[in-house]
């Protein structure tokens, strides 16, 4: 979610769609997650008119959000490398 919003500001439905394409999760539970990240100060939100339909609530990543994101990416990479090495080691 942080990575998606770091690319550009996104509205809720867009995020939900992107995430639910990749992971089998109940779409409704993404909104509580968005809300939590916003409450923790990782996102700020604003309303903006769209070409079609009603004004949409956009999520914008904050500096704190970017910090947390890069921390998580590093953590994930280290984890993935560890797993990779164990898999390779196991097939020797």
């Amino acid at each position: 979610m942080l990575v998606l919003t770091s690319q550009k500001d996104r509205y809720g439905y867009e995020l939900v769609e992107q995430i639910s394409h990749k992971f089998a999760i109940a779409e409704g539970t993404i909104y509580p997650l968005l809300r939590r990240l916003a409450a923790e100060g990782l996102f700020s939100t604003y309303l903006s008119e769209s070409g079609e339909g009603p004004p949409r609530k956009y999520y914008k990543i904050t500096d704190e959000g970017r910090r947390v994101m890069s921390g998580m990416i590093e953590e994930w990479n280290a984890f993935a490398i560890g797993v990779q090495e164990i898999i390779k080691g196991g097939s020797d």
């Binding site: 509205y11 439905y13 339909g53 949409r56």
Partner: peptide
């Protein structure tokens, strides 16, 4: 605010 968000979800889904 949350209800607005879910309403928006329905509207966006309808548009797509």
């Amino acid at each position: 605010e949350l209800m607005g968000e879910f309403r928006e979800h329905f509207e966006c889904a309808q548009l797509s």
